[in-house]
């Protein structure tokens, strides 16, 4: 199969998934159980307010029509207005997304060395004390819920050694150094969680490659150990790494929800939680769909990367 067809097929599949996701989100929030308006208003509802809200949300229209106009608007970049603040959702989202992208970028920067170095050490010293020690550390970190890890880091660096602010609040006028101080703890939390997953997988991948016959062949060709590792082992262990990174991106989108909330960082994740607490239906739908779209895009990129990196597919 030609590579172009593979790529196009993969892209089409992603778009189909996104379409399905939008239907699922719409179905869960607006259609499934009972009346949206009374859910939003809760106990304070009076018949008049309910009717007004229904009118505002076009709840009297059939579901399919509402879905189409909602999704159609999204496609044109029009997310509608938030319920609570009545501001355009795009306007609310923009600074939040900027903050979260910044946070994720810093987190990824910390994550890469945090994942690669221990994995390399473990794979080359397998079944030795270093390997076992690192395994125990990763296991414990793996078992820590991210909100606990965030809290522990906070206890360490805010309370015991007070060098960082407890609340990572930034506004558009914040200085670079304010941003930096605000980002350290949340980014480190995210990086640790992602790295812990990656270390284990990378270690196993590397070991598998190191045990393969072509590595034995390379050794029996008389290549020195360093060349075997760098020229034959690493390149072949990198493709699966890409996959872990995509999985981690997927985690990141959920992880920011918790971590931003813990540190009071005004990003996309805390917006999502706030919109849920305020029952701001249009805002919820927009944020959830964006989160899913990012996840799908990350997986798509990882797959395409794997296709391009695999000589079998690239040349075939």
């Amino acid at each position: 199969m030609s590579i172009l067809r593979l790529v196009i097929g993969r892209v089409l599949l992603s778009l189909l998934t996104l379409l399905l996701v939008s239907i699922i989100i719409f179905a869960i929030i607006e259609v499934l159980p009972g009346d949206v308006a009374s859910r939003i208003l809760g106990r304070d509802a009076t018949p008049e307010t309910l009717a007004a809200l229904r009118e505002r949300l076009h709840l009297n229209d059939p579901a399919i029509q509402r879905y189409l106009s909602w999704f159609g608007g999204m496609l044109q970049g029009d997310f509608g207005n938030a319920l609570t603040s009545a501001r355009p959702i795009t306007e609310i989202l923009a600074p939040r997304i900027f903050n979260t992208v910044l946070l994720s970028a810093v987190a990824f920067g910390i994550y890469l060395p945090l994942a690669l170095i221990p994995a390399l050490i473990q794979a080359t010293h397998r079944e030795r004390p270093v390997d076992h020690g690192l395994s125990v550390v990763t296991l414990i970190l793996l078992s820590m819920p991210d909100f606990l890890l965030a809290t522990v880091l906070m206890i360490l660096f805010v309370i015991m050694i007070p060098v960082l602010p407890a609340i990572s609040l930034v506004v558009e006028t914040s200085t670079v150094s304010q941003y930096a101080r605000a980002l350290v703890l949340p980014a480190t939390t995210l990086a640790i969680v992602m790295a812990v997953y990656a270390v284990r997988m990378l270690r196993d991948n590397l070991i598998e490659v190191l045990e393969s016959e072509y590595i034995r062949m390379a050794e029996l060709k008389g290549l020195p150990r360093r060349k075997v590792l760098l020229r034959h082992a690493l390149p072949n262990a990198l493709v699966p790494t890409l996959n872990v990174t995509a999985l981690n991106l997927g985690y990141l989108i959920g992880g920011v929800v918790i971590v931003e909330k813990v540190f009071g960082f005004p990003g996309f994740g805390s917006l999502l939680v706030d919109s849920l607490q305020l029952r701001d239906v249009p805002l919820i739908e927009a944020t959830v769909l964006i989160a899913a779209a990012v996840y799908i895009a990350a997986n798509l990129l990882a797959d395409l990367g794997a296709i391009l990196l695999n000589p079998r597919l690239r040349a075939g």
Binding site: E213, Y214, A218, R231, N236
Partner: peptide, 8 residues
Amino acid sequence: TTALSPGM
């Protein structure tokens, strides 16, 4: 098949 380095 398994003894030749696949990416080289």
